[in-house]
Computed example of a mutant assay.
Amino acid sequence: MPGRTFRVAVVGTGNIAAVHAQNLAGLADRAELVAAADIDRERLDAFCDRWNVSGRYHDLETLLAVARPDLVHLCTPPGLHKQQALTCLRAGVHVLCEKPPALSLAELDEIGAAQTARGASFATVFQHRFGSGAARLRSVMASGALGRPLVAVCHTLWHRPDDYFAVPWRGKWEIEGGGPTMGHGIHQFDLLLSVLGEWREISAVAARLVRPTATEDVSCALATFVDGTVATIVNSLLSPRETSYLRFDFERATVEVEHLYGYGDDDWRIHPAPGHEDAVTTAWRAGPSGRSSGHAAQFAAVLDALEVGSPLPVTLPQSRATLEFVAATYASAFERRPVRRGEIGAGSPFYRRMQGGGPPWTPALTAARPQETTL
């Protein structure tokens, strides 16, 4: 049984903060939401009134000093994540950060150094890893019942109209760090990586086709994994019939999940190969069940880790592998070449900025290469 109730604070009280508060309320015996911070007083008051939060602050430093939380949930725009994470970690406070965890690999490495120095833990919200469907797939895969993974598909086909980008911080490299590759499809291919493991090489294209944004509005990548698995990844904000779809073709079965923003057990399907029906079906039915991929599943895992003093999931190294996948996608698309894992080091322009030297549709580059305005 849980031994203590942890003090939690939320920084940033927009839409995603309400999701955090609602899911924390379901864990009230283990976590108490004691404080919130936002520079918008009206939004902060509305949030605190709705969720009965007593501590109301307009700056993070005061919140940390007065409320003394055990854990801070960062629900702010991505451009604020690094500095806010550093402030918390340097104060010895654990951090659970909404995706993406930082704007670049360089920023995430700064966070990693602060985590090491003070002993507080940093984790990213990648909740799709924690649903029982994903846990079942990883378990059955580890048992050998499915055979080798061979081919995978990971599609985040969403639709965001032009007015979505009217919010001042959306669609800007310096605040969001990228388009659907960085901020939308990242949940699906993080799940892909949690199943298939270490990737080896990416070849990609990215385009800004129609949306009023500085970033891409679609990207497509072909990734190979260390074990030879080949996967296609599409991230789109241009798709009127929205879906999030992952497919894994193993030697003895195909496993699929289709949902939009979160899955349950019923969203998963398994199709055994001829001659393997009984063994595959038996193994699949024996796996975990009953847990959706919502935030609550990851929050419970985070509290479990706090109880025993282990690193919070999803750990910084795991988050870095996913963020490196993003950086490699942009590097491949903008430099028009395959990019291998580990290639983007401190000397690469894509280490400090996801756009590197700028996408081909940047005005200066467009003038030099007018034929490359969308790829």
Rank of each mutant, 00 (worst) to 15 (best):
V230Q: 08
G228P: 12
K99S: 10
G119T: 12
A114R: 11
S121K: 09
E61W: 00
F189T: 08
P359F: 11
A21F: 00
E277L: 03
I202H: 04
L63G: 12
A142V: 07
S239V: 03
P161T: 11
G112C: 13
W199G: 11
Y57C: 13
D217K: 04
V210R: 14
S319D: 14
V66L: 04
V314A: 05
S104H: 12
T281E: 11
V11L: 14
G185E: 02
P78E: 12
R337F: 10
G171P: 12
I202K: 02
L71W: 03
K82V: 14
M1H: 11
Y164T: 14
L60P: 01
D278R: 13
A283R: 07
P77I: 01
Q371L: 09
L260D: 11
A253R: 00
G290V: 07
F325W: 15
H155C: 03
V210T: 15
V140G: 12
F250Q: 02
K172G: 03
G179D: 05
G112R: 10
H259W: 09
L27G: 04
Y263E: 15
P363W: 07
L260C: 09
A333K: 06
V72F: 10
Q355Y: 06
F350V: 11
A207Y: 10
T124I: 01
G92W: 05
V308A: 12
G287T: 10
L193Y: 00
S139T: 13
L237G: 05
A273D: 07
R138L: 01
R247Y: 00
E256G: 01
L105P: 05
R56G: 14
W51R: 10
D227C: 04
P359Q: 08
D227Y: 02
P360W: 06
F126V: 04
L27N: 06
R118Q: 13
A21T: 00
N15H: 02
T232P: 02
R4M: 15
R208K: 14
T124R: 00
M141V: 01
W284R: 05
G112Q: 13
H184T: 12
G197H: 11
F130D: 06
E110A: 12
A67T: 04
G3C: 07
Y164K: 09
V10N: 06
F165A: 12
P311L: 06
P349L: 01
V151F: 14
D40L: 12
Y245M: 10
V140H: 13
V210N: 06
A91C: 05
R340Y: 03
L312C: 10
